[in-house]
Simulated scan of single mutants.
Amino acid sequence: MIARSYRTERLCAAVLGTVALLVGGGALALNLYRVDRPVLDPAVLDWVRGHLLPTRVGVIVLGLLLLVVGLRWAWRAVTPEKHPDLDLEDGLVVTSDALADAVKADAERVNGVTSANVKVIGEPALRMKLTLRQGADLRAVWQDLDGVLGRAREALGVSVLPTAVRLDLAARARHRVR
């Protein structure tokens, strides 16, 4: 994975929110004009009383399933992303910080780039965030960035170096009116 995706978290939150909204809206719609009627229909309660053991087992299984899903979701959200060191030939190990710093320094030399942030996130894969100055030629920056990544591929001895690139524009300098 090149970019850490929050799609799973967003999907789970959207599904959970939709279910809660539908249950609440359904309860409200059923009891909108009948204030004296209970939320659960008496026919449903009679069925539950008649099938007490399967109902309890179903509720316990559903509760355990929700507990496992919730714990997995929370664990994924708080687990930091791994930044592995790279094992090259002849026992040479390149730390992820060294590789990130080298690519960052090379990327910051590109004309039009004011700052760069680089992280090693795979075996090997990169995530780059480049901040461009106002008026930078995007096409020239992109071509120079291809050279930066080419040098990184050559240094690592790989033919493919997956890279996620995010381009941001620098904030415009504020001019104070006097």
Rank of each mutant, 00 (worst) to 15 (best):
P84W: 08
G147A: 11
A116Q: 00
D137V: 06
L28K: 12
H175G: 14
T163C: 03
K129M: 09
R166H: 09
E108Q: 02
L145I: 05
A107M: 05
H51G: 06
I2M: 06
P84H: 05
L145P: 00
P124R: 02
L86N: 02
H175V: 14
G25N: 07
N111S: 15
V15C: 06
V120T: 03
E154N: 14
T131S: 04
R34K: 07
A3I: 08
G24L: 03
M1C: 12
A125D: 03
G91W: 00
D85C: 05
V68H: 14
Y33T: 04
A105K: 14
T95D: 01
R10E: 10
L149H: 03
Y6W: 12
A13C: 11
G157R: 10
L11H: 10
A3F: 05
V78L: 13
R172L: 11
V110Y: 00
R4A: 06
D85P: 04
L66S: 09
R127D: 13
N117P: 13
P84S: 07
T55C: 08
G91Y: 00
A155E: 06
L126K: 01
L30T: 12
W75I: 15
P84Q: 04
R176G: 15
V160D: 15
T79L: 10
V57P: 02
V94A: 02
W73P: 01
D97W: 13
V158W: 00
I2A: 11
A164H: 14
L66G: 08
R178V: 13
V44F: 06
V19P: 06
A20H: 05
A100I: 01
D168A: 15
A173H: 13
L30Q: 14
H83R: 10
M128T: 03
R34A: 07
L67P: 05
G63N: 05
A125S: 08
D85Y: 03
S96E: 05
S159W: 10
A125T: 03
S159L: 11
D144G: 04
A155D: 08
R176S: 14
G91M: 00
V94L: 04
S5W: 01
G24Y: 04
K104D: 11
R72L: 15
L88G: 00
A100C: 04
A107E: 03
G122N: 03
R56A: 12
L16M: 13
D168K: 15
E154T: 14
V69H: 15
A170S: 13
G157C: 09
W75L: 15
L45F: 05
K82M: 12
P80L: 09
L132N: 03
V165M: 10
P80S: 12
V61Y: 01
V44C: 04
G150W: 06
E9K: 06
V94K: 01
L65Q: 07
V165Q: 09
R178A: 15
G112F: 01
M1W: 08
